[in-house]
Write a protein that binds this DNA or RNA. Structure first.
Length: 478
RNA sequence: GCUUCUUUAGCUCAGCUGGUUAGAGCACCUGACUGUUAAUCAGGGGGUCCAAGGUUCAAGUCCUUGAAGAAGCGCCA
C-alpha cells in the first residue's frame, strides 16, 4: 500500500485501505490524533478504535512524534472534518519525549514570533510557518514561470564577485588568507595577490551589472539568487542575506521598465490568490485574530485577501519625484510641521514621506520616477533635463520600497563622465564599459526584494519570519 | 549606528511608593475519561527573577555598565 499525502487523502472518497505518514500535532482523549505531513495547512484526524492498537504503541504516540498509519478512510462522525482514518496499524517512526517537547515550540500553545525565531529549526512544524514557506515556494515557482512565459532567460550571476562598483551597500569580504597572519605588501596594505583569487573579492550585493552583460546579447534575462549586505541595519524589513530578482531587458526604456514591474507584481499576486487559497485563508484569519487585540487605529483597513485582490485589480499610481515633492509640500502633515525630515527638491524621500504617499494619499502602490541624479547610482540614465535620472521605485503599502529600478546609461561618453563623478576607476569596470562600445542599446531593469514580496503576500510584518534562517546583525544561528 | 521599550517557571505574563516562604493561566508528570478538535476533571512537580557591579538594615523592584530581543529611524531590496 503506497503512502499518500494528507492533502490528497482529505480529498478522497471513503476507501478501505490507505497509508498516511506525518507528525503528530495533537493527541486528544487517548483516541484522536491530528497528523500533518506538510502537504496541506490542515491535518488529518486519525481515530484509535477500541484496543486495536497495542498499548505499548499508543504510549509512544505524543506530540511531535512521526507516524506511519494504515487504515480505512471513512466519513467522520465528528464535526471538524469530512473524513478521518480509522487506524488498523500504527508504526511509530520516531518518538518525541514529551518532557523535552515541552521545552520547544512544538508544545501546542500560542508562541510569540520571537520565540519561534529562536527555534527556527522547528518552526516549520507550525501551521503559520508551514503556510508561509509553502507560499514562499509558490512565489519562487511563479517568478520562474512568469519569466519563462515571457521569453526571459534565467542567468546565474556570481555570488563571489571581484566587482566593487555597485555601491549598493557594505560588502562581506571573501578571503582564505589566514586572519592570524595576514600578508601585507610594501605599502602596509593587505596583499590580496596572495589571496585565493589573487585579488580582493566580496559577496555580491547585486547581480545587476552582470545581468546587463547577459541582456546585451540574450535580450531578456533575470537573476534570482542570494544577495548580501553587511549593513548594520536593525529593522523589520532588512536582512544581511536576502534573495533578489533582477530582470534586465534590452531595447527597453523606463516606461517599459515600470510596465514590466507592475505586470510582474500583479501576476505573482494573482498566482498566490489562485494557487495558495488555503494557506492565504489561514493567514487572513490569523491576522484578523491578531487585529482584534489591537486598538482600531492599528488594524488593517482591508483583510489580507482583500489587499491582494486590490493590487491585482487596480493600477499602480505613477508620479515623478518632482510631483511627489510638490504633493508633499501641499500636504497636511507638511503644513502642520509633522514631518521630521525636510521636503525639498534634491533630498531623498524618507520613510515617513513614502508612507504618506502610499498609505494616506493614494492608498495603493505608487511608482515614483525621475529622481535627482545626485541621490541615485552611477549606472542610471541621465535625463535630458540635466538634473534627474531615469530611475523608479515601486512603493507598497506596509512594506515601503519593494522594487528599485532604472533605465541604464547606454551612452559611453555620458557613462564615463558619471563613473568619474562617482569616483569609480575605469579599469575596474572595463568589462561593463565594453557593452557600451560594441553595439550599445537602451536597456532597463529592476530589483525586487523576494522577502519583501513574501511579506506582502503573507501579511507577515517582520522579514525574519519569511526566510527560513534569517541572517541579521549578531545572528547567524543554524 | 541612533532613539525608545522589553528581559521573572517550558511558554505567555502579573508582581504597587524596596519589606517575611516570588504568583496565575497554559504546558509537563500521575490518575480518570470510547467522539475529541485550544478536549475536560482531580492531584503533583517545577524559579541562577538576563549578567556584572553599586546604593540600602533589606533589591525581582532603585542606580551604573554590558548582553540579547522588539519597535521606529538611517542605509536599501
Amino acid at each position: 500500500m503506497p503512502r499518500i499525502k494528507i492533502k490528497e487523502a482529505l480529498e478522497l472518497q471513503p476507501t478501505p485501505n490507505i497509508n498516511v505518514k506525518g507528525w503528530v500535532r495533537a493527541f486528544r482523549s487517548n483516541r484522536f490524533i491530528a497528523l500533518n505531513d506538510g502537504s496541506y495547512i490542515h491535518s488529518i484526524q486519525i481515530v484509535l478504535e477500541d484496543e486495536k492498537i497495542p498499548e505499548e504503541i499508543v504510549r509512544k504516540i505524543s506530540i511531535g512524534a512521526a507516524l506511519s498509519v494504515k487504515g480505512a478512510l471513512v466519513e467522520s462522525l465528528g464535526k471538524g472534518q469530512k473524513v478521518e482514518v480509522l487506524a488498523e496499524e500504527i508504526e511509530v517512526l520516531g518518538e518525541a519525549n514529551p518532557e523535552e517537547v515541552q521545552k520547544t515550540i512544538l508544545q501546542p500553545k500560542k508562541h510569540s514570533l520571537e520565540k519561534l525565531r529562536e527555534q527556527a529549526h522547528l518552526r516549520f512544524r507550525t501551521n503559520l510557518f508551514g503556510a508561509v514557506f509553502r507560499i514562499r515556494h509558490a512565489m519562487a515557482f511563479a517568478i520562474h514561470n512568469y519569466f519563462n512565459k515571457n521569453g526571459f532567460y534565467y542567468l546565474h550571476t556570481p555570488i563571489i564577485t571581484g566587482s566593487d562598483a555597485e555601491g549598493a551597500g557594505e560588502m562581506f569580504k571573501v578571503t582564505n588568507l589566514p586572519l592570524e597572519n595576514i600578508p601585507f605588501n610594501e605599502e602596509g596594505k593587505v596583499d590580496y595577490s596572495k589571496d585565493f583569487f589573487g585579488k580582493e573579492t566580496n559577496l555580491t550585493v547585486s547581480g545587476q551589472l552582470e545581468a546587463e552583460l547577459g541582456a546585451m546579447a540574450l535580450g531578456q534575462v533575470y537573476t534570482f539568487g542570494p544577495t548580501f549586505r553587511a549593513e548594520n541595519s536593525n529593522t523589520s524589513r532588512h536582512l544581511a542575506e536576502f534573495w533578489m530578482i533582477e530582470p534586465e531587458v534590452a531595447f527597453a526604456d523606463l516606461n517599459d521598465d515600470m510596465a514590466l514591474s507592475e505586470d510582474f507584481m500583479k501576476y505573482l499576486i494573482r498566482y498566490a490568490l489562485e494557487n495558495c487559497k488555503d494557506d492565504l485563508a489561514f493567514l487572513m484569519q490569523r491576522e484578523l485574530n491578531e487585529d482584534k487585540q489591537k486598538p482600531k487605529a492599528q488594524r488593517n483597513e482591508m483583510n489580507l485577501i482583500e489587499r491582494l485582490e486590490f493590487i491585482v485589480t487596480n493600477d499602480f499610481e505613477r508620479i515623478s519625484y518632482t510631483e511627489a515633492i510638490e504633493l508633499l509640500q501641499r500636504s497636511k502633515p507638511y503644513k502642520k510641521n509633522k514631518f521630521k525630515f525636510p521636503v525639498e527638491w534634491g533630498v531623498d524621500l524618507a520613510s515617513e514621506h513614502e508612507r504618506f504617499l502610499v498609505e494616506k494619499q493614494f492608498k495603493k502602490p505608487v511608482i515614483i520616477y525621475d529622481y535627482p541624479k545626485e541621490i541615485k547610482a552611477f549606472y542610471m540614465r541621465n535625463n535630458d533635463d540635466g538634473k534627474t535620472v531615469a530611475a523608479m521605485d515601486v512603493l507598497f503599502p506596509g512594506i515601503g520600497e519593494i522594487i528599485g529600478g532604472s533605465q541604464r546609461e547606454e551612452r559611453l561618453d555620458v557613462l564615463k563622465e558619471k563613473i568619474k563623478d562617482f569616483n569609480i576607476e575605469e579599469e575596474h569596470v572595463w568589462w561593463y564599459l565594453d557593452t557600451r562600445k560594441f553595439g550599445t542599446a537602451p536597456h532597463a531593469g529592476f530589483g525586487l526584494g523576494f522577502e519583501r514580496l513574501i511579506m506582502f503576500v503573507t501579511g507577515m510584518t517582520n522579514i525574519r519570519d519569511v526566510i527560513p534562517f534569517p541572517r541579521t546583525p549578531k545572528n547567524a544561528e543554524f
